[in-house]
Design a protein around this nucleic acid. Structure first.
Length: 274
DNA sequence: AAAATCTGCAACCGCAGCCCC
DNA sequence: GGGGGCTGCGGTTGCAGATTT
């Protein structure tokens, strides 16, 4: 019945990755580059399925990943892009090259969704207080979501077209193509893992990896590369805008070009919490 | 202080689409 | 053209730590 899970083979390890496994995977990718995931478990001896290796790399080990502490600007981007695209986390992540789709998805589900709900509760209350009592708005529910669990902001329109535009501009997969970056990551790994006590790795959970990525790849020399990639990503978005202007995309353009959070809020009609 | 509950996030599952033969 | 394999993606789960009772 149904499709069997990809990883139900006997001997395939599941669950949290150990630092040792991470080092093996990073070393292998340093040598061969990302891709051809099918061959990774056999070539490395890792008792993981190819899918697990790919996920571990893209969501955690890939150089340039920034973790935790989303800035208000990033929050604004996520909220606005989610309003435009719906739950197209990969597309949204392509505009935040230092964040993974998984990270953004988690952040949306755990933080932003609640914030938006709260905001709309407040906004709804305000409307009720200020609107005439004859209002025919029967939306008791505070937040509007469509069938795709997409938050419906005032700016939302022509989503199909915008998704096409977004998809066209997400072609730049921002894997670290630079061997230098990967080796820097590996160096950081080796240094830290040697001084790391097992107390930091309860039940195989490796929380301190976060810092390694930040230190080595975001604040280090490698950050130049990723800033450039972000810039290119935004440029490609602008190119698409030139060809596909419509009202809400112009809003988007305005928002992208604005640099201060105040302007962002204004352009997006975002609540003050951002 | 201990138990119960909540929260955040890494990892897994399974579907869809692409690519190659 | 179509069948199989591989990869990408979004939804969901499970668990550890934090918070509350």
């Amino acid at each position: 019945m149904g499709r069997p899970p990809c990883c139900d083979k006997v001997g395939i390890k599941k669950g949290p990755w150990t630092p040792e496994e991470d080092i093996i995977l990073v070393s292998y990718i340093q040598e061969h580059g990302p891709g051809n995931w099918r061959s990774v478990p056999t070539n490395t001896g890792l008792m993981r399925c190819s899918k697990s290796c790919r996920l571990r790399w893209t969501n955690y080990l890939r150089p340039g990943i920034k973790r935790g502490n989303f800035t208000s600007h990033e929050e604004g981007m996520i909220v606005h892009l989610q309003a435009l695209l719906g739950n197209k986390w990969a597309a949204i992540a392509s505009y935040l090259p230092q964040r993974t789709d998984n990270d953004i998805k988690n952040y949306w589900n755990t933080h932003l969704k609640k914030k938006m709900r709260k905001y709309h509760q407040t906004a709804n209350l305000d409307t009720k207080l200020h609107a005439p009592s004859s209002s025919t708005n029967n939306n008791n529910n505070t937040t509007n979501y469509n069938q795709n669990n997409q938050f419906l902001s005032p700016a939302t329109s022509n989503n199909r077209q915008q998704q096409t535009i977004m998809a066209a501009s997400t072609s730049s997969t921002l894997y670290a193509s630079s061997a230098e970056n990967i080796s820097r990551l590996l160096e950081g790994w080796m240094m830290r893992s040697s001084s790391q006590n097992s107390s930091n790795n309860k039940a195989g959970k490796v929380k301190n990896n976060d810092k390694i990525n930040d230190d080595e790849c975001v604040q280090g020399e490698g950050s130049v590369m990723f800033k450039d990639e972000l810039f290119e990503s935004i440029l490609s978005f602008d190119d698409n805008l030139m060809n596909n202007k419509n009202e809400s995309i112009q809003d988007m353009e305005k928002w992208f070009l604005d640099e201060t959070s105040g302007q962002v809020k204004e352009a997006m009609q975002l609540p003050s919490m951002f």
